[in-house]
Write a protein that binds this DNA or RNA. Structure first.
Length: 503
RNA sequence: UCCCCGAUAGCUCAACCGGUAGAGCGAGCGGCUGUUAACCGCUAGGUUGUAGGUUCGAGCCCUACUCGGGGAGCCA
């Protein structure tokens, strides 16, 4: 079967003045009696198709007038540039053919709740926002592969069924593997280390599974992670690699998906500043900031701004309510009622932030050296910076057994997290790996892990051990940060969350 | 596992002190030759999450449960 469309919407700019045929779905339509405006999407973009009475057969005009949202159709017409149209081009329709009629499409052009949209995920894809995010995700993944492929890295596919524990036993999904318990991978890193001793620079890229009982906007039980691993590298080398890598991804999205970012409301100006070097803080410095006056002031200022915001919202609501008590035309009342709903939703969100602010301030102030940084602590640090922040040298006891101890300060590990700016939080975690056989063995025992299971991993330290390290970047968190999407469940096609799989 | 919030029309939300449940969008019909989540008129659409309780009377108060949202811990 040949493509029924002669032309895709993204090609319209090269076809001005020509007659073309488009095939797509009816995204929205407006009618003005003798002229109709059909917004059609075809996967490559949106196009306004203008249907004038008399320019098409009367029965076709009538059929289009009653066509439901998301009906599929093919339209033929003349391409012309018009500032008033989405995308700047429109089609003056001369012929149209309905392919699949639709009645009662559930997702309307008005707002919907998260749960409703998730239950209609298979249809939600068609919405503008999801379409934009999907295209950004595509670019992010392509940029990830290109960066490593162009810089001498070899792709290694690490297993999804694993016999080893990377992070924490409790966060693993167990599967019955012909009667034997195995686990779904939570990192490819350990396997990757063995590959790094062969190829030097390697990376793995695939789905990762974590059974953490986390119900937050930055958690999924199944997510995609890319992990490079490099032989003969130190912590500074890793930080440099990570900042070049992240900067490259952002630059690619800015180059390939600018209009999507605009539609999504991303902060393009701020993304353009994402160039090396990023900020560097040690964990100890981060703790000093969190427990110091700077954070007290910062949180107080934030609270003040939130309260202002709340006051403004309340004032707006009161004013609108006052207006409603007067005598008004019905349409005016309705309009005010709609505005009230929006203001109340904003107010509720602001109230939640106000409620959380003191809790987070308290958590930060009460932070003691030795704990891992909490989500809210990361948020505070990242909110204080306009570029990503590396936090390095965490207490080794709070970190995984494979991380190398800093020989200059045995209390800390040679590791780092990368926090995306403006409150997005952690998108990368990485470290230099412990390359001393006896130290690693001791840590494995200390964690209560079985050294026999890790015999092969210990072998890597017996035969030509070298300093090496790597990191993992979460794809969905990166996409969420770049697209300014609040929840990472919107950044993966079919999200799997704690206790919740929709379709 | 813990803390906070919520559940009312297909969807998003109103309903003052407890007194017969209302809008917008969507659907259907009609009007309008440049609309931008178009607009205007009409029509249809409800066992207020479930089970109890208090009351002359419960969407509203009380108890339990179910489901959903946000956050903590943990993490990419």
């Amino acid at each position: 079967m040949t493509n029924q469309a002669g032309t895709y919407i993204e090609q319209l700019k090269d076809n001005v003045g020509k007659q073309v045929k488009l095939a797509g779905w009816l995204y929205n339509s407006r009618s003005s009696g003798k002229v109709q405006f059909l917004i059609i999407r075809d996967g490559t973009g949106l196009c306004q198709c203008v249907v004038e009475k008399g320019k098409v057969p009367d029965d076709v005009f009538e059929q289009l007038r009653h066509l439901g949202q998301e009906s599929s159709l093919a339209v033929t017409g003349l391409v012309r540039a018009d500032e008033r149209s989405v995308g700047g081009y429109e089609l003056a329709v001369t012929a149209a053919e309905v392919i699949g009629r639709t009645e009662g499409y559930p997702i309307t052009p008005k707002s919907h709740g998260v749960d409703f949209l998730m239950r209609h995920r298979h249809l939600h894809f068609r919405s503008q926002r999801q379409w934009c995010i999907g295209r950004v995700r595509h670019t992010v993944i392509d940029a990830i592969r290109r960066f490593f492929n162009d810089n001498g890295y070899v792709l290694i596919d690490t297993p999804i069924f694993t016999t080893i524990v990377g992070e924490d036993q409790t966060s693993l999904f167990e599967v019955d593997y012909f009667g034997e318990p195995l686990h779904l991978t939570q990192t490819g890193q350990l396997y990757l280390e063995s590959a790094a001793m062969s190829f030097g620079r390697v990376y793995c890229f695939g789905p990762t599974f974590r059974a953490e009982k986390s119900k937050t906007r930055r958690h999924l039980t199944e997510f995609w992670m890319v992990e490079p691993e490099v032989a003969f590298i130190d912590l500074d080398g890793l930080l440099e690699l990570a900042e070049n890598f992240v900067s490259y991804i952002v630059a690619r999205v800015l180059a390939d998906n600018r209009s999507e970012l605009e539609t999504l409301g991303s902060d393009i100006e701020s993304l353009e500043k994402m160039t090396p070097p990023f900020y560097r803080l040690t964990y100890t410095e981060a703790v000093e900031i969190l427990t110091g006056q700077r954070t007290v002031d910062f949180m107080a200022e934030q609270l003040r701004q939130l309260r202002d915001q709340r006051q403004r919202a309340k004032g707006g609501i009161a004013e609108l309510e006052q207006q409603l008590t007067g005598s008004l035309k019905q349409w005016k009342r309705d309009k005010i009622a709609a505005e009230l709903i929006e203001l109340r939703a904003d107010l509720a969100e602001t109230n939640t932030k106000i409620e959380n602010n003191p809790k987070h301030a308290e958590l930060a102030a009460g932070f003691r050296w030795g704990k891992d940084l909490g989500g809210s602590d990361e948020t505070i640090i990242s909110q204080m910076h306009d570029k990503p922040v590396f936090v390095t040298h965490y207490p080794k006891d709070a970190k995984a057994f494979y991380m190398k101890t800093d020989r200059a300060d045995e209390k800390v590990a040679l590791n780092f997290d990368l926090l995306a700016p403006a409150g997005f939080g952690e998108i990368i975690g990485g470290s230099v790996r412990e390359d001393d056989h006896d130290r690693l063995l001791a840590r494995i025992k200390q964690e209560g892990l079985n050294p026999e299971t890790y015999a092969w991993y210990l072998d890597l330290r017996k035969y030509g051990s070298v300093p090496h390290g790597g990191f993992g970047l979460g794809v969905e968190r990166t996409v969420a940060w770049i697209t300014a999407e609040k929840h990472i469940r919107q950044c993966i096609p079919f999200p799997r969350m704690m206790d919740k799989v929709y379709i």
